[in-house]
Design a protein around this nucleic acid. Structure first.
Length: 439
DNA sequence: AGAGGGCTAAACATAA
DNA sequence: TTTATGTTTAGCCCTC
């Protein structure tokens, strides 16, 4: 067992009056760390006058940016994402990298995020391609995105593990025997509790821009500086990047508005689940999840504790049902997604909001099984039917754009775990396509 | 005032 | 043996 650097009861007693400071428990704990640790920590986290910013419940998050609420929104799965507008509207392009918390003016950079560990873990797992992460990767995700934890006491890792173990929202999945690398198990989100987590997530105050950022996702993308992402967004507002260049969080950032719109539309016609359905067995729900699919065909956790503690209220499950379905279900055909996506982008491309990656995209997925005639293809065909002389060229150009768009949208959707919630819209789009073709 | 959620610390066990 | 991981318990604070 490795030593855990943190506050001991003895050291607590050495901090007179600290416990009496209402709402500053987190700070006093930090401020009373061993001096060696304090010396390595930015002063901002230690100064009492600024300690209020470190408080988890401090609402100064909301005051630091006048347009905070417009800059942040929730992604397709309810995960908080940074809206592209965030980068565009600011006079100074906010740094999305670690430098943002080295700026002493941005106190919030060293502030605690307004998310509980459970939510942070949830976001980390959901942003992973496999919807499963080892503890170490969860650490990394949090460290990469929450500057606070870069300088926080190491006890937060203990808290992460504690949450993983105690919170039944998270399920341990044994690694496959074939996998040699790595210690421990993979952790996944129990789809049964995804709605609860998402609801809890949405209840949180929006973070300040410098507290939640999206760094380059992988070592191979190290050449992609945060400024690159900012500049790209600034130039094109929304633009699709290569999958290797951005992580799922960024992908969801780019896709946010259109997906949310789709989900919102999807929620309308869906009836509420019955109580019986809500009470369906855990094992069924867990096995049902395609989001839990693993590359290594990992076996499921062997022990499932049905205890009801450390859980979010079941009352929220119905409300988020559709969103949950979007992440735990799968489309029967990937093409269906592709056929749907252009419609979303088309709807959003009228100047208001949406997915604007039709042109000038860098997406280059090789293994994309795109079929023909998606919605966008049909839209292009419609324009070509207006008697243009360069009909063929235009059609070809449209098809290229369509393919790029569909590749980008489909891949991003795949990352975001968007699935069956779009089914109704897909079928609607299909029907419309068929009608238009008949015309 | 009490319940519940969340965080932190700590001890311990286990696996790599 | 060391380290990382996982489990459990306890105590505290905060919000409702």
């Amino acid at each position: 067992m490795g030593p855990i650097i943190g506050m001991t009861p003895e050291k607590r007693a050495e901090t007179p009056g600290a416990e009496k400071v209402a709402g500053l428990s987190q700070i006093y704990k930090m401020g009373s760390l061993p001096e060696a640790v304090d010396a390595a920590r930015p002063k901002a986290t230690l100064v009492n006058s600024e300690s209020a910013d470190d408080e988890l419940t401090n609402l100064n998050w909301l005051h630091e940016s006048t347009n905070l609420l417009t800059n942040f929104s929730f992604g397709s799965e309810g995960l908080p994402i940074v809206s592209p507008l965030y980068d565009i509207e600011g006079d100074d392009v906010p740094s999305l990298g670690p430098s943002c918390y080295q700026n002493p003016e941005k106190k919030s950079a060293t502030s605690k995020p307004p998310y509980s560990f459970s939510l942070l873990i949830y976001m980390a797992i959901e942003h992973s391609p496999n919807k499963c992460l080892p503890v170490k990767e969860i650490y990394s995700w949090i460290l990469n995105r929450i500057p606070y934890f870069a300088t926080a006491p190491t006890g937060w890792k203990n808290s992460v593990r504690h949450n993983l173990s105690l919170n039944k929202c998270f399920q341990k999945v044994e690694r496959s025997h074939g996998k040699v690398n790595g210690k421990g198990s993979l952790w996944c989100v129990d789809p049964e509790y995804k709605p609860n987590l998402m609801q809890a997530l949405k209840k949180q105050p929006f973070p300040s821009k410098s507290t939640f950022y999206t760094p380059p996702a992988s070592p191979q993308s190290g050449s992609l500086s945060p400024h690159y992402l900012s500049s790209v967004l600034k130039q094109n507002q929304v633009r699709t990047l290569k999958e290797s260049d951005i992580d799922a969080a960024t992908a969801m950032m780019l896709l946010n508005t259109s997906i949310e719109q789709g989900i919102l539309e999807c929620e309308k016609p869906l009836p509420l689940k019955t109580a019986v359905q809500k009470k369906r067995s855990y094992s069924n729900a867990f096995n049902h999840s395609s989001a839990m699919r693993l590359h290594e065909s990992d076996s499921l956790a062997t022990s499932i504790d049905p205890k009801e503690d450390h859980n979010y209220s079941a009352s929220s499950m119905t409300a988020q049902r559709c969103a949950s379905r979007s992440s735990v279900s799968s489309l029967s055909s990937v093409d269906e997604v592709y056929e749907f996506i252009p419609k979303s982008s088309h709807v959003g491309s009228d100047g208001s909001e949406g997915f604007h990656s039709e042109e000038d995209t860098d997406v280059d997925y090789e293994d994309d099984p795109l079929g023909d005639s998606g919605y966008a293809s049909q839209a292009c065909a419609d324009t070509s039917e207006k008697g243009q002389p360069d009909k063929k060229m235009r059609k070809q150009s449209c098809q290229e754009i369509d393919e790029e768009l569909k590749e980008a949208a489909g891949s991003l959707l795949h990352l975001a775990g968007i699935r069956t919630c779009l089914g109704s819209l897909i079928s609607t789009a299909k029907t419309q396509n068929q009608k238009q073709r008949k015309k």
